[in-house]
């Protein structure tokens, strides 16, 4: 196996061998499914067809906080326990260790997000029957695909941020208010919206069709795939920052 492949295999052992992984990912599934089920129960099929995506994504958009917590604690525990020194002694190349960590974590999150999203979609379909968003429509597939990419990239973004800040508590203290407030409040305040709408979490609302372009209050100046592009840039910047931080600082 290549050196990077070995390092990824090691990082995967790390992810799967702590109990908190199963607990947080289980909680992510429970929150997403539970909330979507509640919304689906009170769903009124009278509106536009793509309103049927609301019950699917309302749960996922809230549950992303749990997924972000998983990403942050997984990376943060490496620093808080001092395991990072054993990791660097075993894999002295900072870039390789970071790439391996982000790959293993990113793939784990991508798999979890895909499974939970599919389960939520199926649950909503069972709940509201024919009023559910049809998989034959491109906008349904586009939203599901975009939502999956969003959940994965946002988690990798926060994981990279944790490498820079080297602390679970500090990272979550910065992230959770931002993820809560800007999604559900600040992003809609007219005075700061021109800037705030480009925050990494804002993309999710657009991608998951929680808002539509042109909506006077909740609308954003960009569409779903531009939104994904914005998130890719945020993630790339965070990964670069993490790499720079690991190379520059002593362990």
């Amino acid at each position: 196996m290549s050196a990077l492949g070995s390092a990824v295999a090691a990082e995967w052992v790390k992810v799967r061998s702590v109990r908190s992984t199963a607990i947080t990912l289980g909680l992510f599934a429970a929150v997403a499914l539970g909330l979507s089920w509640l919304i689906a129960r009170s769903f009124d099929p009278g509106g536009p067809a793509d309103d049927a995506l609301l019950p699917v994504f309302f749960g996922l958009l809230t549950a992303q906080l749990v997924l972000v917590t998983f990403a942050v604690t997984t990376v943060g525990s490496e620093f808080s326990t001092g395991t990072i020194r054993a990791s660097l002694a075993a894999v002295p190349s900072r870039g390789r260790l970071l790439a391996a960590k982000m790959t293993a974590l990113g793939l784990t999150i991508a798999a979890a997000a895909l499974i939970v999203e599919a389960a939520v979609f199926a649950l909503v379909r069972v709940s509201i029957g024919d009023a559910a968003a049809p998989l034959t429509e491109w906008w349904t597939i586009e939203a599901l695909l975009g939502g999956w990419i969003h959940l994965t990239l946002l988690s990798v973004f926060t994981a990279a941020l944790t490498v820079m800040l080297r602390s679970t508590v500090v990272t979550l203290s910065v992230l959770l208010p931002v993820l809560f407030l800007s999604s559900q409040g600040l992003g809609n305040v007219d005075a700061i919206k021109p800037v705030a709408q480009y925050m990494p979490d804002q993309v999710g609302m657009v991608v998951m069709r929680m808002t539509v372009p042109g909506d006077p209050q909740f609308g954003r100046d960009y569409g779903a795939w531009t939104g994904i592009g914005i998130l890719v840039l945020w993630t790339a910047a965070a990964l670069l920052g993490a790499w720079w931080s690991m190379r520059r600082r002593d362990a």
Binding site: K14, S20, T81, G82, A86, A89
Partner: peptide, 30 residues
């Protein structure tokens, strides 16, 4: 490097909930 140098640093620097076997397994994989 683990095949050239073995180091014991702080004994506390292990994840408290990762089993001894899995701690050594990830090191071996690297």
């Amino acid at each position: 490097p683990l095949t050239r140098v073995g180091a014991l640093l702080e004994a506390e620097a292990v994840h408290p909930s990762r089993s001894a076997f899995n701690h050594l397994l990830w090191l071996a994989k690297t």
